[in-house]
Design a binder for these strands. Sequence first.
DNA 1: TCTGGGGTCCTAGGACCC
DNA 2: TCTGGGGTCCTAGGACCC
Length: 420
Amino acid sequence: MDRVNAPPGGKIRRIAHLDMDAFYASVELLRYPQLKGLPVVIGGGRRTQDETLRQTYAGHTLADIPVQDFPLLKDYTGRGVITTATYAARQFGVGSAMGLMKAAKLCPQAILLPVDFPEIRRYSRAFKDIILDIAPLMEDRGIDEVYIDFTDVPGGQREGGRVLARLIQKAIFDQTGLTCSVGVAPNKLLAKMASEFNKPNGISLVFEDDLASKIWPLACRKINGIGPKADEKLKSLGIETIGQLAQQELQWLIDHFGQKTGAWMFDAAHGRDTRPIVLESEPVSISRETSFERDLHAVRDKAELGAIFTRLCEQVAQDLARKGYVGKTIGIKLRFDDFKSITRDQTLEQPTADARAIRQAAGLCLKRAPLTQRLRLLGVRVASLSRPGGGAEFKEKEPLAGEFIAQTAIFSEAKSGQLF
DNA sequence: TCTGGGGTCCTAGGACCC
DNA sequence: TCTGGGGTCCTAGGACCC
C-alpha cells in the first residue's frame, strides 16, 4: 500500500466525499415545503415564472401558495436543461443535464422552478462552513460537493469514519434542513464512488479489502474521469466493468489509451489514488457565456449579437474586478446551430481587467472565426490570470527594472478598470 | 420541439530560444 | 551540409466534471 494510504500512529487514511442530495431542488423545497414529495425540476434559466408567482402572492407566506398555482414543466417553451430533479421526478426518468423539452414529455406534470443562484450560494457556503468547524481539511469541489480528510479528526477513525460522517450529516441537517450522502474510503477515488452507494441521506464505507466485492462489479463509467467517450471505447474493447478493466495488463491499456490515461486507468481499476486533499486553489480562467433564445446570424443579427458580446465582456470584467484578478489571454467561444464549437484566443502584452480592452481583443478573435453559420452561443473568457500589482506573473524571479515599470502600469490600469 | 453555464486538464503542433 | 535536443509560450480542440 502507498505510504499516503497508511499514515503512522495506527491510524488509517480515511477520506470522505460528501455530496448534497438534489441540492438545488432541496433548497427550493425549504422555501416551498408544500412541494415535498412531488416531482419538481430546477432549470430553464429565467426567473420570470417564479417572480410572477411571488408577485401574485405578495404579502402571503410562500409556504401557503397552492400547489396548483406553480408553473408546470409542460407549459415551458424555450431552451434549457434540468439542473436538478427531486427524487420524485427522477422516478419518471428525468435527471440532470436533460433538455427541458425532452423532460416535459417524460413528466409533464412536474413543477418547474428556476435556479436561485444567490440562495444556492448562501446554502453552499453554509454547509461548507459547518463542515470546516468540525473537520478543517476540506477540499471544495464545486457548489454541492466536498472531500474531507477524516484521518486525524476526532471520530474520524471510529467505525471506519461512520461516526464522524453521521455527526457531519446531523450538523448540516440541524442547521440547514438539507440532507447529504457521504462515502468514506482510503482515497478520493473510492470515496467518490462510495458516496453514491446509498443516496439520499446515506453513509457508505469502503475499505481496501472491499475492492473486489464493492468496486469491481461497477460499470467503468462510475470512475470519476471516465466519461462517455472513454466508456464507449472500453465497451468496444469488450470491457464493461471495473473488474474487467482491472484484469487488463498495464501495457495493453497504455497501448490503447496512451501513457498517461492508460496508467491512470490501471491504477483506478485497482482502487489506487494518491491525490492529496487540496485546501486552496487559484482560478485558471474566468468566463461568461450565453445561449441565445433563437439562433443568431453574424450579419443579419449583427446589432443584437454586438450588444450581447459587449455585455459578456462587461460581465467578465466585473467578475475579474470582484475576485481581484487581471488576465493576459482573452478568448471567445462560438457554438454553431449544429452544436459544434470553436474557440479563438489571443494573448496581450499586459494583463487587463478592463471591459473595453477585453472587448477589443475579443473582437479581434471574432474576426478570425468563420461566421457563415448561425450561432447558438457566444462566450468570452479571460485566462493566464494574475493579481494586479501582486506580481503573480513575475513571482518566479526577481523583477528587473523594466518589469517593475510594467507592473506599476498594470496596477493603475486595474484601478481604472474598477471605476467601470 | 434535443443539448446551460461555469470550470479544469490534456494533447499536439508551431514558433522561438539556447 | 546536415543534424540535435530541451524548454517555454501560444493556440485550438476536446474530454470531462459539477
